[in-house]
């Protein structure tokens, strides 16, 4: 088994964070949370993160602005894969996420197997 990977969940809805945490911890990941982009930027500086799961619509700093900022940082931060999750499902939303630097986009709600599967894929975890 690989060493434990850390996933940073960035979402303003506490229910979503709880859901992601429960799902991902159940799959052996370590989960950290941030309520918006600003908080996430701070947290990224304090511990190594292997994957960010980012909501789009958040107060303080939305997910896309956050991603744009991260992709402009130095390599250690800028290279962290990002999974954007949002209820928006229009082509324009997918595209906006891509432009901001999202590595993948999933439309909410995401069932638990699917979330685990993509966390494994994007963290490079073999089961």
């Amino acid at each position: 088994m690989d060493p434990q990977k850390t996933i940073l969940v960035v979402d303003d809805a506490s229910l979503v964070r709880l859901y992601y945490r429960t799902t991902l911890e159940g799959a052996g990941f370590h989960v950290e949370e941030a309520m918006n982009g600003l908080e996430a930027l701070e947290k990224l500086l304090t511990f190594p993160v292997h994957l960010m799961i980012v909501d789009i619509n958040m107060p303080q700093m939305d997910g896309l602005t956050f991603l744009q900022a991260v992709r402009r940082k130095d390599r250690a931060l800028a290279s962290i894969p990002a999974l954007v999750t949002s209820t928006e499902s229009a082509a324009a939303d997918f595209e906006a996420a891509r432009v901001a630097g999202a590595n993948y986009y999933l439309v909410k709600p995401i069932d638990q197997p699917r979330l685990r599967e993509f966390a494994d894929l994007l963290c490079g975890v073999r089961r």
Binding site: Q68, R72, R75, A78, P81, N103, G124
Partner: peptide, 20 residues
């Protein structure tokens, strides 16, 4: 953002392949 895009895309793609 070129460096960030390339590094993260490379990592995501590599991870996906490793996972499989």
């Amino acid at each position: 953002n070129l460096a960030g895009f390339v590094a993260s895309a490379g990592l995501a793609a590599g991870n996906a392949l490793r996972s499989c």
